Simulated assay, not measured.
Amino acid sequence: NKPVYKLLGGQVHERLRAYTYIYPRPGDTKDVYHDPDLAAERSAEYLSQGFTALKFDPAGPYSAFDGRQLSLEALDLCERFAKSLREAVGMKADLLFGTHGQMTAAGAIRLAKRLEPYDPLWLEEPVPPDAPEEMAKVARATSIPVATGERLTTKYDFARLLRAGAAAILQMNLGRVGGILEAKKIAAMAEVDHVQIAPHLYCGPIVGAANIQIATCSPNFLILESIETWGGFHTEILKSPIRFEEGHVIPSTAPGLGVELNEDVARANPYTGDMLHLEMTQHPVQ
């Protein structure tokens, strides 16, 4: 009859600062992932919902053949995104620059130099995740904190990152690293090196709830990934919704994960697609 965080050292944080991707909306006539003006306009909406951090990912597709050098056009678009968003949010929100390992270390350093004037909170997974020593080259060459970890699967992977000095922020995904206890071990390893955690989320509210448990009991927690304000279908599929207030998630005091799946809603909405998530292309990207 206790929440998981009570069993893993107790509650450290009463509120968890959250961020969201800048998402497309029905009726958009432009692609918010590729139009910096629309992204800047949408950022104002998220600020009005209380968010103080926004993530965006304009660097283009990633492939089985990465890392690579981004084209001049892609570099320019990335810089225009950072500039437009910084002008739109001012000092009211952090900017989180997302990538998916598209670049070589040299290419990521070129991009980072363009982004530094806009002071992002992080540069995410700038090189493929199998090369922490290369990622460390990026970390040493830029003032932007490097964040990574969404595609890693074991505490041993994260130990390599820490030994290499490759990241300031670890983004383990609890649906991929072996669950809550393994994630707690990763968080504890990071704490020893004064590295922070920002649990990653590309799943739904069940993994989201597990992330909340780890974040609540971890002294080195930085920020939590949310899917907007956990409204809509993510409210319907839980018997009690995740509590979101003024840009923060409020940890539940309910037992276990703090949420309960509404299985009737789940059965009524079977997944009929054939994609698991973002999928890397199987041909080189120029």
Rank of each mutant, 00 (worst) to 15 (best):
L8N: 04
H13F: 08
R15D: 09
R17G: 15
I22L: 10
I22D: 09
P26I: 12
L38A: 03
A39M: 02
A39D: 04
E41V: 08
R42F: 15
A44G: 15
S48C: 06
G50C: 10
F56N: 05
A59D: 14
Y62T: 11
F65E: 02
F65A: 04
L70H: 05
E73G: 07
L75Y: 07
D76G: 14
C78T: 00
C78Q: 04
E79S: 10
S84L: 10
S84G: 09
L85P: 00
A88H: 03
G90N: 06
G101F: 03
T104Q: 11
L111I: 07
Y118V: 01
P120I: 09
L121T: 01
E124V: 09
E125G: 07
P126W: 00
E134M: 12
E134S: 12
M135G: 12
M135V: 08
K137Y: 05
K137R: 15
V146Y: 13
V146P: 04
V146K: 06
A147Y: 01
G149V: 06
L162M: 11
G165T: 14
A167L: 06
A168P: 03
Q171V: 07
G175F: 02
K184C: 15
H194P: 10
V195Y: 05
P199A: 06
H200V: 09
L201Q: 02
Y202D: 12
P205L: 08
A210W: 02
I212W: 01
Q213S: 05
Q213L: 00
P219C: 08
L222P: 13
E225M: 01
W230R: 02
E236T: 12
K239D: 13
I242A: 09
V249L: 08
I250E: 04
T253V: 05
A254M: 13
V259E: 11
V259F: 13
V265F: 09
R267K: 13
G273R: 09
M275K: 14
T281A: 13
H283S: 14
P284V: 03
